[in-house]
Amino acid sequence: MSLKNILENWSDYRRTAEDGGHHDYEHMWAMAIDLNKCTGCNACSVACYAENNLPTVGKKRMMKGQGMHWLRVERYWDEPDMGGDEKEYQERGGSFLPMMCQQCNAAPCEPVCPVAATYHTPDGLNAQVYNRCIGSRYCSNNCPYRLRYFNFYSYYEESWPEPLNMQLNPDLSVRDKGVMEKCTFCVQRIRVGKDAARREGREVHDGDVITACAQTCPTEAIVFGDMMDKSSKVSKIWAAHEVELGKHEQHKSDPDLRGYRVLEGLNTDPCVTYLERVREA
């Protein structure tokens, strides 16, 4: 792709609903995370470290917010829908929220990149091209979810002392200082799934591709799949909970359906739907 081509066409696959949305994309990868099933166990986060060559940065840098956890499990103590803040004890436990790049269709990170290192792919993914990235960090500043991680240092120098480096996944690069990175929905696994389907001359089936976090989840709270495939598990969950892409608020036939997208009102159009946590009142 020539520079001219990039500058003209980088937003080809960044379409609002009015412009036809995602309906002619090859795939539309998405997730549904059931907070009734999620126990906050953190297995997804560590699986992500194992799959995606995430460096450990140590205590000091973690405390500065420089941890490279593409997937972090947030924990909140308050329950705005339930009240109970005045109680002596934390009676309904904590509220866990696994947060990875929400792969927004109207991603605020994309238009601010001065070099088109982040853009939307024909699969509906918010891509980050490491070798284009010049480290301006505008994208990170513009992400309302704080889910972009910057390599402030050459973490690889200390993160994988031999022979720990033998665990590195050759399917994706190890990022160096000055490069922004984030969850890719395990694009290397998507590639493998698509290649296998192509070789066998068939469509990608639901379940062919599974991200590392969804794969390891002991409760299968994370469901990953293709929204273009109406029979996929993830499509069915979105449909059952009446969450639609291309909207900044959902109008549901039953207000008690649990699906919602985090900070949807910002019109980021994220590809991750959460199903509400459940507690005895």
Binding site: M1, N5, A127, V129
Partner: peptide, 9 residues
């Protein structure tokens, strides 16, 4: 293909 992520990882 001309999509960046086809060839960059």
């Amino acid at each position: 293909p001309s999509d960046c992520w086809k060839c960059h990882k």
